[in-house]
């Protein structure tokens, strides 16, 4: 193990380490803690210039205000309306493409694969105008469906990379044996491969959920009104209205950040498995 395990060091070093950990964490999360505290500070404190002192009271009412006086509830609903179909659509498509690319050897396999991989790296801006026009012509401009459709297509690239590598690493004997038995190809997919892909599906659903929830650019480009905007774009426009009302901005930020954070803490193992794919040989 590297570095040398701390248990093997002198007691002084060990104590130092145990003190350094929380201090480092505190410094690391400084901006976050500041915002979390501000979100609980009554507006009167901010008005009187008490930004960092002890709050005169704990104002959970800021959160109530955010929900009652802004469309943030609608924004969050919109985020779910974009995110959930995207996760499902992407997984369906990429399980299929991953299966096709991971199991079969055909001409152009590697070209198609790297087409998907390369698509991942493309800057969004080169897609912006055509995708916006396309969405508009489909009658889906300023709808959650139109936004989800684009996300499905784009995320399929990333997920294909993941799925294909995962499937290619499955033992080929399983599939060969099934073929000898005369099992139809689609049944191999449905009854043999798909059940084995559960960990990959779990990892990708958490990752895609987080990516899409946090997307801001496409939300800005493809949606414009409070009834369709996801929470990232919504928060940005609320920020324009809540100027100098940092207690509300903070509370809104925390609310917007919560779903992916919960997802992360609940599904940490899958999340990190997905993120670090390829980080080890």
């Amino acid at each position: 193990m590297f570095p040398r395990p701390i248990e093997k060091s002198s007691p002084a070093v060990r104590t130092l380490y145990k003190v350094a950990l929380p201090v480092a964490l505190l410094l690391w999360l400084f901006p976050l803690l500041g915002v979390a505290l501000t979100s609980l500070r009554p507006a009167s404190d901010l008005a009187m210039g008490n930004y960092f002192g002890i709050p005169s009271s704990i104002a959970f009412s800021n959160y109530a205000d955010v929900f009652n006086n802004s469309p943030i509830g609608q924004y969050i609903l919109n985020s779910f309306k974009v995110t959930i179909p995207t996760v499902i659509g992407t997984l369906v498509l990429s399980c299929m493409t991953g299966f096709a690319l991971g199991i079969y050897r055909f001409r152009g396999n590697i070209i198609v694969f790297f087409l998907f991989v390369a698509g991942n790296f493309v800057p969004f801006q080169i897609l912006m105008v055509p995708v916006r026009d396309l969405t508009y012509n489909l009658g889906l401009y300023n709808t959650t469906g139109g936004l989800a459709l684009f996300h499905i297509a784009f995320q399929t690239g990333f997920c294909t990379l993941f799925m294909r590598n995962f499937i290619a690493a499955l033992p080929r004997e399983l599939i060969e044996a099934a073929r000898v038995e005369g099992v139809a190809e689609w049944r191999i997919f449905w009854y043999i491969v798909l059940p084995l892909m559960r960990p990959a599906i779990a990892a990708l659903s958490v990752l895609v959920f987080t990516f899409i929830w946090n997307d801001f650019f496409w939300a800005t480009v493809l949606t414009t009104s409070a009834s369709t905007q996801p929470v990232t774009a919504g928060l940005s426009s609320l920020n324009g209205q809540w100027i100098a009302a940092w207690h509300l901005v903070s509370a809104g930020s925390i609310v917007a950040a919560l779903p992916p954070v919960l997802m992360f803490f609940l599904m940490q193992k899958h999340f990190i498995a997905g993120l670090t794919l390829g980080a080890v040989k």
Partner: peptide
């Protein structure tokens, strides 16, 4: 895990 919008704010 946090959205860049929130990080920016």
């Amino acid at each position: 895990v946090i959205s860049q919008v929130v990080v920016g704010l």
